[in-house]
């Protein structure tokens, strides 16, 4: 089992090490993920319903209220 895990690890490690332009792409992907999760999600895209209601029932009540008296 350990042997297979090592082989898989080395497979990925050698693959990443042999990349040329791929390294730049990975840097851009990581920047993108950082912007998305550490900035946009954390500060700007909070879950609206969770901020207004805690339980499932409260969420149902809130949405129902919005549907019948928007």
């Amino acid at each position: 089992m350990k042997k297979y895990a090592t082989r898989i690890f080395n497979f990925y490690k050698e693959g990443f090490q042999s990349m040329t332009y791929g390294k730049t792409l990975w840097i851009i992907i990581l920047i993108k993920l950082f912007i998305m999760f550490a900035i946009l999600k954390l500060f700007f895209f909070q879950d609206d319903l969770s901020n207004r209601a805690q339980t499932e029932q409260e969420k149902s009540d809130y949405v129902l209220e919005q549907l019948i008296s928007p």
């Binding site: 791929g22 851009i28 993108k32 998305m36 895209f45 909070q46 879950d47």
Partner: peptide, 21 residues
């Protein structure tokens, strides 16, 4: 693939924030 990867996740963020109803 690398350029486009994860851009769709923003849409899911928007469902929760802008389109919660």
């Amino acid at each position: 693939f690398a350029i486009g990867v994860a851009t769709g996740i923003i849409l899911e963020f928007e469902f929760g924030t802008n389109w919660s109803h």
